[in-house]
Amino acid sequence: MSRETLNARRLLCPLPVIRTQDRVKQMNVGDHLEVICTDPGVMQDIPTWCRINGHTILEAKTEDGEYIIVLEVGE
């Protein structure tokens, strides 16, 4: 299991979702991805994207004006 970080700062939705999707494609089931964003829209869009595509949100938090989401890659 690996853990990777994706810098999606300054990108506006849906670009953070697209970058997340493209990165997840290269990862394996069970891997963790941390996505760091500045658009608050990700707090809604990335969890929705995860739900419909079978990935799990492990953490979603706001820190110093940034939005950080950790997800686990599903099947």
Binding site: P40, G41, Q44, D45
Partner: peptide
Amino acid sequence: VEGHTHAIRERDRAQPKRNNSLWAAE
């Protein structure tokens, strides 16, 4: 037309926003 301007403008930040294509797929 998606979240962009909502994400930018202060007065729109309070409104719930969603990406309609993701919402439709769900």
